[in-house]
Amino acid sequence: MIPSAFDYEAPATVAEALTLLADDSREVKVLAGGQSLLPVLKLRMADPELVVSLQQIDELRGVRMEDQTLVIGAMTRHADVAREPLIGAHAPLLARAAAEIADPQVRHRGTIGGAVVHADPASDMPATLCALEAQMQVVGPSGQRTVPAAEFFEDFFTTVVEEDELLTAIRVPSYDDWGIGYEKFTRVAQQWPIVSVAAMVRLEGGSIAEARVALGNMDTVPVRAAGVEAALSGAAPTQEAVAAACASAAEGTNPTEDLNGDATYRRHLATVLARRAVLAAVADAGA
């Protein structure tokens, strides 16, 4: 319950933060809401010498539209993502998934950037941002780069963000005419999902024109169900067609085994939840 001792800095700008991160003489952890980091520190599963809080950096907060693209500051809190009208209008899947994260207290404190860089494959944001084909804006000593969500997550709790880099913003294209569905399967409300599915569909002329389906906790990183998406493209928005398309949802996944279920069960769940999420998205799209 008592972390190891550390020094603490709360820089006011990204530039100052990067200077602090560049100090490789000390083990540094970035504090971006702390809803995953502080439990780790309290259990002494990490003992950094310096904690750099991004709380004072105003430029990392807030949501704006830039050319039909939502730009969400990394330090935007989950509660704000969930209730921000711009996000509700242009990327409702993101708002919906943000509202499902952990509990209200955590959503009042935790940030989208913090959750994304923590990269827990079971958490809500990674799979959702993959479905949304978000672009991650990363800044470091050598300047800024933009990484597609699909390439951003490398492994359990590991992303492309280097130790001297910061995730500054997440860019999400507009999905104004899409229907959404989000399925989060847990045994109790507090639990991390055993499997989650984020889905979006766009209907055109009475059939599914495009679909996005991403799975959470089915591998060490979030997984796009590409086969399902392809099968849905052009399909009729019916129970049968969606079920047939989603039967392959678990293909190519490598889910973990734990107290909540073995891989067989998780693969099965993925197909059921994918179907339910897509059908919800179809209904939401107005079919």
């Binding site: 809803q35 439990p39 509660a79 207290q105 009042h108």
Partner: peptide, 9 residues
Amino acid sequence: ESIKSCTML
């Protein structure tokens, strides 16, 4: 707004 005071420095 509510927060968990064990999870904030």
